[in-house]
Simulated scan of single mutants.
Amino acid sequence: MPLIEVKLYEGRLDGATETELIAKITDAVTEVFGEQAREATWIVLQEVPATRWGIAGVPGKPPLSARG
């Protein structure tokens, strides 16, 4: 079943945010594919330094806060 990769600016996640994001993405997949998909759904959260992102041709900037 699905392997879903989520890439975010480094520093955007904490334990509670990771748990909630994984649960809600899994719930969305399950809503589409049915409850049998829950056990086979993999979610990978990967934090990437902001300067490694290119946005409109310019390197990204770190977020002001973990949730901002």
Rank of each mutant, 00 (worst) to 15 (best):
V32N: 02
V32P: 00
V32K: 05
V32W: 03
V32E: 05
F33A: 08
F33D: 00
F33W: 11
F33Q: 03
F33C: 05
G34A: 06
G34F: 02
G34K: 01
G34N: 00
E35L: 13
E35W: 09
E35P: 06
E35Y: 11
E35N: 12
Q36W: 14
Q36V: 13
Q36A: 12
Q36P: 05
A37D: 01
A37T: 05
A37G: 06
A37P: 00
A37H: 01
R38T: 13
R38F: 08
R38V: 03
R38H: 07
R38L: 11
R38A: 09
R38P: 00
E39D: 05
E39M: 08
A40Q: 14
A40D: 15
A40R: 15
A40H: 15
T41F: 02
T41K: 05
T41H: 02
T41V: 14
W42P: 00
W42V: 15
W42I: 10
W42R: 07
I43T: 04
I43D: 00
I43E: 04
I43V: 11
I43M: 05
I43Y: 03
V44A: 09
V44L: 09
L45K: 08
L45A: 05
L45T: 10
Q46A: 11
Q46W: 04
Q46G: 09
Q46F: 15
Q46I: 15
E47R: 11
E47P: 02
E47S: 11
E47A: 07
V48W: 04
V48R: 14
V48S: 04
P49E: 03
P49Y: 01
P49F: 03
P49Q: 13
A50G: 10
A50H: 03
A50L: 11
A50W: 01
A50R: 09
T51D: 08
T51H: 13
T51F: 05
T51L: 06
T51P: 06
T51A: 14
R52K: 09
R52I: 02
R52G: 00
R52Y: 07
R52V: 05
R52W: 08
R52A: 15
R52Q: 11
W53Q: 02
W53S: 00
W53H: 03
G54P: 01
G54H: 07
I55V: 15
I55Y: 01
I55K: 06
I55N: 02
I55E: 05
I55T: 09
I55D: 08
I55G: 03
I55S: 03
A56P: 00
A56H: 04
A56G: 01
A56M: 07
A56R: 02
G57Y: 06
G57E: 08
G57I: 10
G57P: 06
V58Q: 08
V58C: 05
V58H: 11
V58T: 15
V58P: 01
P59F: 04
P59G: 04
P59S: 10
G60M: 02
G60F: 08
G60T: 12
K61D: 12
K61A: 07
K61C: 09
K61N: 08
P62L: 12
P62C: 04
P62G: 12
P62T: 15
P62N: 14
P62V: 14
P63M: 15
P63T: 13
P63A: 15
P63W: 15
P63R: 14
L64H: 14
L64P: 06
L64N: 11
L64T: 12
A66M: 03
A66I: 13
A66C: 06
A66K: 12
R67V: 13
R67P: 06
R67Y: 13
